[in-house]
């Protein structure tokens, strides 16, 4: 097998592979930077919670309109935003901390979702929502993924400065501007959007992977925020390509293969990354003069 056959052939030969490639690249492009901010705000598990919270919306959309992308997307967005806003309100007005109120609401949401799915759909449908079908992306799904990636990057660029300040020094931001609260909400909305965009391709659960794994891996390659975002995006893109190629040749399911590739990237970074990777740490290196 030539290199061409191994790396390029599958995409030239099959349209579904090209669609999968475009879709997963678009997803990785938007998810990388969002994941970096989640990690830096110590909200790495927030994505997981939200992925579960989206389920009843997607399920309701499915119940109303069948396997309709639009209906499931709108439903997912509504459910996601509802949980974020409710949890935010409860955090602000009661003794509960953010993680506790979020846990409460996403669990309620998840139970509702499973109930709705089992009322009508079969387990196969549930699997589709949970794990996606990156090899069956139609035009509408591709346009949705591309739109969401574009919107994510655009909004992130727009709120970048207050978002960074809200992370580093929220009391300073509060003393110079009232943007803190709205910016935090806008960011959470981006997380929900990325996950909803992702669930068509990778499913609600696995789309968290393309958000968080590259971000975690990036930590071992870059120190500053700009570097982290670039590294995370790059690792996300690479994982998408690698995952698809490997899944094609070995006959593995593609969604999980992409996330496994990202996971492998994460492990490799953890071991060999130049910024605090394990190997460097174990090498006997003498200290510097200053």
């Amino acid at each position: 097998m030539t290199l061409y056959d191994a790396l390029i052939g599958p995409f030239v030969e099959f349209e579904f592979m090209r669609r999968a490639l475009v879709g997963s690249l678009a997803l990785a492009l938007g998810a990388g930077p969002v994941g970096v901010f989640l990690m830096l705000r110590r909200m790495s598990l927030f994505g997981d919670a939200m992925a579960h919270a989206i389920l009843p919306g997607a399920a309701l959309g499915y119940l109303v309109a069948g396997l309709s992308l639009t209906a499931m997307t709108i439903g997912g967005l509504i459910a996601g935003f509802a949980v974020v806003i409710l949890a935010g309100l409860v955090t602000r007005n009661t003794v509960l901390k953010e993680d506790a109120s979020l846990a409460a609401f996403y669990l309620i949401s998840l139970a509702l979702g499973v109930t709705i799915v089992s009322l009508k759909g079969s387990n196969v449908d549930l699997l589709h929502v949970l794990f996606g079908s990156v090899l069956a992306l139609d035009n509408a799904a591709l346009i949705l993924l591309a739109t969401m990636a574009s919107v994510t990057l655009f909004v992130l660029a727009l709120i970048y400065r207050p978002l960074v300040m809200e992370c580093v020094d929220p009391s300073f931001l509060q003393s110079v501007s009232r943007a803190g609260g709205p910016v935090h909400l806008a960011f959470l909305a981006l997380v929900v959007m990325t996950l909803v965009g992702g669930f068509n391709a990778l499913g609600t659960l696995l789309s968290v992977g393309i958000m968080m794994l590259p971000a975690v891996a990036a930590r071992f390659w870059a120190v500053e925020l700009t570097g982290l975002i670039c590294a995370a995006t790059l690792i996300g893109l690479l994982s998408s390509v690698t995952g698809l190629i490997v899944s094609y040749h070995l006959g593995l399911p593609s969604g999980p293969a992409i996330i496994l590739a990202a996971g492998l990237g994460c492990v490799i970074s953890l071991a060999f990354g130049p910024r605090g990777g394990l190997v460097l740490r174990l090498l006997p290196r003498r200290h510097l003069e200053a």
């Binding site: 830096l40 960074v164 992370c167 580093v168 020094d169 929220p170 009391s171 300073f172 003393s175 870059a222 120190v223 500053e224 925020l225 982290l228």
Partner: peptide, 15 residues
């Protein structure tokens, strides 16, 4: 211009 106590700042943030 308000300088709160140091604890309010996330010193691990890569800025």
């Amino acid at each position: 211009a308000y300088l709160p106590q140091l604890a309010a700042l996330d010193r691990s943030f890569p800025i």
